[in-house]
């Protein structure tokens, strides 16, 4: 299992990293340790309870957050231009079947590493989301989850989507089922893209408030907010379509 851990909002200290490694080692000795930017990357063997492992690591300091955990998921996020993300983390060298990303334009909550996207569904390995929009019943949903002991890391409404996904998928629902259920449970505007170990899917709100378009070819599936993103990445043109209101779509590896 690979863990990406935010050591601190302002870079990392030797002490901070050592402390985190010690906390993790109390449960299972990390096989591999690497540091990049503000993150510590740990590879840990065994099938530990993700929430227990997260809690142990985060007990190192209030500033520490496990931003991703999984056998195939790794989240890296930064404040600033996406180009810096490539410089620091060499995203283009990542290998895998699919990836999601989002440049957040902050409107309500603060701008820092934890409030950046994607959000990991804390406690649920290999599940992450990105969201464009505004979940207007965020506070109500959050209160309900908090009453059941769920910890929130930010003041950002998009975080509720990750929590919701983790809760519903833990109950055994499929990705498709959860995305359909979300259309009933979430209010507001959303174009939301979800990644699991073996699938990627989206849901768009009932009024099609927020853009999300996609193109499918024999070689790949591409999803973006605007077509200009595709044209910047792919040299050949392919047919794209704006997703409809209440549209749910899932692609499997």
């Amino acid at each position: 299992m690979v863990l990406q851990i935010k050591v601190g909002e302002n870079g990392q200290s030797q002490d901070g990293a050592a402390n985190i490694i010690a906390k993790a080692a109390a449960l299972s000795q990390p096989k591999d340790v690497a540091t990049t930017g503000s993150y510590l990357r740990l590879t840990i063997d065994g099938s530990l309870d993700p929430l227990r492992l997260t809690a142990a690591i985060e007990s190192a300091s209030p500033d520490v957050e496990v931003v991703s955990m999984g056998r195939s998921l790794e989240i890296v996020k930064q404040v600033g231009s996406p180009e810096r993300l490539e410089e620091t983390f060499r995203i283009s060298e990542f290998k895998g079947s699919h990836g999601i990303g989002h440049t957040r334009m902050s409107t309500e909550s603060k701008v820092d590493l934890s409030h950046s996207q994607p959000f990991w569904a804390h406690g649920y390995p290999d599940l992450a989301i990105v969201h464009n929009g505004h979940i207007t019943n965020y506070h109500k949903l959050r209160r309900q989850y908090e009453q059941h002991g769920v910890r929130f890391y930010t003041e950002n409404d998009s975080e509720i989507i990750a929590v919701y996904m983790a809760q519903e998928m833990s109950r055994g629902l499929s990705l498709e089922e959860v995305l359909h259920k979300a259309l009933i449970d979430w209010d507001g505007s959303f174009s939301c893209l979800v990644s699991t170990a073996d699938a990627m899917g989206f849901v768009k709100d009932s009024f099609a408030h927020k853009p999300l378009l996609f193109g499918e070819t024999d070689e790949f599936v591409a999803v973006a907010t605007e077509e200009v993103a595709f044209r910047a990445v792919f040299s050949r043109e392919f047919r794209v379509r704006e997703a409809g209101a209440r549209e749910v779509k899932v692609w499997r590896n």
């Binding site: 099609a208 853009p211 704006e242």
Partner: peptide
């Protein structure tokens, strides 16, 4: 205005 592909919202 004629668009040969699809149009957004």
């Amino acid at each position: 205005v004629i668009v040969e592909g699809n149009a957004g919202n």
